[in-house]
Deep mutational scan, measured.
Amino acid sequence: MDEEYDVIVLGTGLTECILSGIMSVNGKKVLHMDRNPYYGGESSSITPLEELYKRFQLLEGPPESMGRGRDWNVDLIPKFLMANGQLVKMLLYTEVTRYLDFKVVEGSFVYKGGKIYKVPSTETEALASNLMGMFEKRRFRKFLVFVANFDENDPKTFEGVDPQTTSMRDVYRKFDLGQDVIDFTGHALALYRTDDYLDQPCLETVNRIKLYSESLARYGKSPYLYPLYGLGELPQGFARLSAIYGGTYMLNKPVDDIIMENGKVVGVKSEGEVARCKQLICDPSYIPDRVRKAGQVIRIICILSHPIKNTNDANSCQIIIPQNQVNRKSDIYVCMISYAHNVAAQGKYIAIASTTVETTDPEKEVEPALELLEPIDQKFVAISDLYEPIDDGCESQVFCSCSYDATTHFETTCNDIKDIYKRMAGTAFDFENMKRKQNDVFGEAEQ
């Protein structure tokens, strides 16, 4: 370990593993360490099931009705991949897709007046949907046509809207959309967690709705994908990429100290040895004095023996409960997957309800979601602090990732990755940087 590296990475969460992969592909010498004996950090999948019970201090362990412990891979952080989103792009560019198998999530649902409705995925579904009345549908269709044709580089498509100054509230007004449709559009399509976006320039919202539609167009059922064997497969896929390009991995490796000289990182000390480096990437748990708390998320993992009611017996789905429907500031989400994804025993389902904490009784906040899941065989409640770095790391060369937020997709995580890359490399992130180099010394032969 007593060696000189360009970059040392602490923690094998998804953000850290993707950055480690990119740095290795770009010719950097990388050492990647984790104090845990497993990959994934906060974003790991726990197996066998006995391990999950232990982690949540349920000492009696799983009953026999849960089947074989080894058949379970339970995500600690519930997220899906947008089919046309940035993480899929990263997987394709790096060819990490060859280590993973994905399934399309069967449906996306939205909560309205105590019931759940399928988010329409085709024009026919939209016309048949009970989510809105006849005239509302016509106006909504006009709005969707506007979004589909919108091109930020072609003012002819703006229809009198200025993407940089017109607020989204004004765009909704222009198409005369009612409150329910606005809730549905902002939260189930643009996937905002709160209503803060309404008074911001509309460009980002329009682009988010386009991303949803384009992702949906790829597979038809929903815009989301999920990897077989759980999300823990993602960091491992990128760790393989890093290793192929010469990255060194050490799990179960305690970090005793991060060594600084004149305010700059110069190395990491572990078990009496020092590895030197020019730059350091880590998750917040490794540098508690360089991060601040930015809120909390509650996630309740529920094991069920039945599909969720009114989802047409889907073996995977997402449910969004827009905040307006339950008098909150932030949406509540449910991600459900099952034995069909090799993450649970035969006939079992895993539904994870999550939201940003707003009160001193977080469990009560998630109740509307839990009511949709009854009866629940077993619950595991996790309340996590969200951390963000206190500075950009440019001076110390210590670059810290943000905690995983309450969103049900990876777009915010990818933004964090691109942002850290830019601060480390001094140049904007470009997907081309992730391409495997042809015929290089570490390149794998085609399968």
Rank of each mutant, 00 (worst) to 15 (best):
A406Y: 14
E388R: 14
G21E: 13
D385F: 03
E16A: 09
E358N: 08
D71N: 07
I18L: 13
N153C: 09
A351P: 02
Q318P: 01
N130A: 00
K112G: 03
N433R: 02
V30A: 03
M424T: 11
N26I: 12
D440E: 05
F140L: 07
L189V: 14
D162E: 02
G160W: 05
Y38K: 05
Q346G: 05
L127V: 11
E233W: 14
N342S: 10
V110A: 09
V297Y: 05
M134F: 00
R55T: 11
K422R: 11
M250V: 08
E16I: 05
G178D: 10
V119C: 14
P48R: 03
K253E: 06
F135A: 01
S44H: 05
V206A: 05
A239I: 15
Q164H: 07
K309Y: 07
E51D: 07
F399V: 05
L234E: 05
D176G: 10
G21Y: 12
I308D: 13
G347K: 15
D331K: 12
P227W: 15
D361K: 14
V110F: 03
D170A: 12
N84T: 08
V104F: 14
D385N: 06
I258L: 10
K269W: 13
P307W: 09
V74A: 07
S396I: 03
K89H: 13
K174N: 00
I352E: 12
I390N: 04
Y192Q: 15
D385E: 00
E261D: 05
N312E: 13
N439E: 15
E16V: 00
G133E: 13
T122S: 12
D313V: 10
T311K: 10
D176N: 13
S65P: 09
S213V: 15
L191F: 05
S167D: 09
V326C: 08
A353G: 10
K418M: 04
A243W: 02
K221T: 12
S401D: 03
V326A: 11
Y349C: 07
A148S: 12
M66L: 12
L372C: 03
L127M: 10
L14N: 03
V145G: 08
Y212F: 03
K364V: 13
P48I: 08
Y117Q: 01
K221R: 10
L241F: 00
Y111H: 08
N73E: 13
D440G: 10
F102Y: 04
Y5S: 00
V88I: 08
Q57T: 02
L373R: 02
I352C: 13
P362T: 00
Y421D: 10
K103N: 08
E388K: 06
S396R: 05
T124N: 02
A445R: 12
D71C: 13
T15L: 04
K28M: 12
Y117F: 13
P201L: 08
V171I: 09
G107D: 04
N433K: 04
T408H: 09
Y197D: 01
E50G: 11
C394R: 12
N312I: 04
A190P: 01
V105Y: 01
E136L: 09
E432T: 11
T427V: 06
Q346M: 07
E233G: 11
K89P: 01
D440L: 08
V30G: 03
A239E: 01
K329I: 09
D256G: 09
S213P: 06
Y229C: 09
M132K: 03
P62L: 08
G237D: 02
M168I: 06
Y53R: 14
A340S: 04
Y249F: 07
M168E: 14
S242D: 12
K418V: 12
S213T: 00
D440S: 09
D75G: 08
E204H: 15
Y421V: 13
N433I: 13
Q236N: 14
E363L: 15
Q279D: 02
Y387L: 15
P227T: 00
H409Y: 03
Q438P: 10
T165S: 12
C394W: 06
A344K: 14
P227Q: 01
K174V: 14
A351F: 07
Q164Y: 05
E365R: 05
A243V: 03
S316Y: 00
L14H: 00
E51V: 11
E64K: 08
A128K: 04
F150V: 01
F238L: 04
I258A: 15
I300W: 12
E432K: 08
L251P: 02
A314S: 07
Q296C: 02
Y404L: 07
I301L: 13
G246E: 04
S215A: 01
C202G: 04
Q86H: 07
P37D: 04
L191N: 15
V105K: 00
R98S: 04
K210N: 03
L31K: 04
G237A: 14
C282F: 03
N439F: 14
L231E: 08
